[in-house]
Design a protein around this nucleic acid. Structure first.
Lengths: 228, 228
DNA sequence: ATTGCTTTGTACCAGACAGTTAATTATGAT
DNA sequence: ATCATAATTAACTGTCTGGTACAAAGCAAT
């Protein structure tokens, strides 16, 4: 399209920048796999949309599954780093919990590609995630955070005792995940009222209230339509 | 002199039973697509596991996508018929709601193939479900049932008013669906404690309590096994 | 400049797989 | 029995696609 005349004659000098090439491939591959799944994703398509060639994909990633595996790891890594940026430790427990729920809901909402990758990985029964060492580390952080919030809540007398942090995490994840993962079929069957701007903030509020409700001794404060 | 019929034992007389053949194909195709997705599912594999041949698949279903579409419709049909068997209309509203939640949880748990098909369909952004006329009918029933339960609860003074039936359905679905759809990745990251026998009944109970909690004026009845 | 390693491009292959052709056999109505 | 039609089979085809062979070019150290 825009070839520069004098630069054309043989081969322009290029800088070697393996990291950039790798990142570029990973980025495009992420989109492709998220959009079409592992078996549906096309290596040729990825190569075409990359600044480099198909050969490079195999050079850096070995084969299709290797590429997919790295895409998956990268996606988890990014999402985890987002979670760490929250600083909930100083906050009153019910505020912290609410904020965690809202953050998760919002985060998943903004990262449909991540959600789709996880869906796809579940279709494969976790066969590729299983091969990643990265995942072992991931459990600790999120759950510890929650355990801290819960025990502080129990200490200050607002939360029930004996509530499992893992259960609460499960609950927050389920509601936030489903909201993105099943949007297509849900809105086809029940209309897209849940997925408008207002619908989403109503759901976000509902998720937060639901979670609080299952750990608090009293009903959480009746929420009028308050937003920040 | 000429060959007699019984000389060829391989070829026995068969009765024409198109419906059985169709059903057989559909059954096998359901397993194949649920296991491997649309692009991952192999027509040859389906044919091999069927009592009939590949040509028949095309004879009855046109092409791969046609087959997939019918598998999907059939799956929804079955699940819907299960829902109709519940008779919640005579029950006290909080009992009815609890039973609906428990039923959904249990149903999804027992029908992982259905869950997987819905996941797969969501990966395809609902492109095939969209083509089905069947889905238009499906919304009414489940939601009307819920609306009835909710309004009876409001009338008898145990439920809050202004709660959306669709929201409650969304909530029940999300928790019950996620429990099956994300089992692989969740258990890889957080261990499989949630998915043992006890884990599952605890979750089922939690789902029921959660749902009740979000519609009831007071905390739902403190559960018997609760301890401090 | 030479050498040896890394990175990139081109062209190609072999197998897989959706879909088809054409012939064969059973069925059911007359 | 006959014939039109429905059901069935096996072999075939064209294309798509993951993966590779091979060679060339850049880079860094001598």
């Amino acid at each position: 399209m825009d070839e520069v005349a004098d630069e054309n004659p043989v081969r322009q000098r290029w800088k070697q920048d393996p990291e950039a090439v790798r990142a570029d491939i990973l980025q495009v591959a992420c989109e492709e796999f998220a959009a079409n799944g592992l078996s549906g994703g096309r290596i040729d398509e990825i190569a075409a949309r990359t600044r480099t060639s198909k050969r490079m994909i195999y050079y850096y990633f070995g084969d299709k599954e290797g590429l997919y595996r790295q895409v998956l790891e990268e996606a988890y890594r990014e999402m985890r780093s987002g979670e760490e940026r929250l600083e909930l430790e100083g906050l009153p427990p019910e505020i912290a919990l609410r904020r965690l729920a809202e953050f998760t809901f919002e985060h998943h909402n903004r990262n449909p590609a991540f959600i789709r990758l996880v869906m796809i990985e579940n279709i494969h029964n976790g066969a590729y995630l299983r091969q990643s060492k990265l995942i072992r580390e991931m459990n600790t952080r999120a759950i510890q955070l929650l355990e801290d919030i819960l025990s502080r809540g129990v200490a200050s007398g607002v939360f029930r005792s004996g509530v499992s942090a893992l259960d609460i995490h499960w609950q927050i994840s389920a509601l936030s995940f489903f909201n993105v993962s099943n949007r297509a079929t849900f809105s086809l069957i029940f209309g897209d009222g849940q997925f408008t701007q207002q619908g989403q903030s109503r759901l976000s509020e509902m998720v937060a209230r639901t979670v609080l409700c299952s750990v608090m001794l009293q009903q959480p404060t009746p929420q009028p339509e308050r937003r920040k």
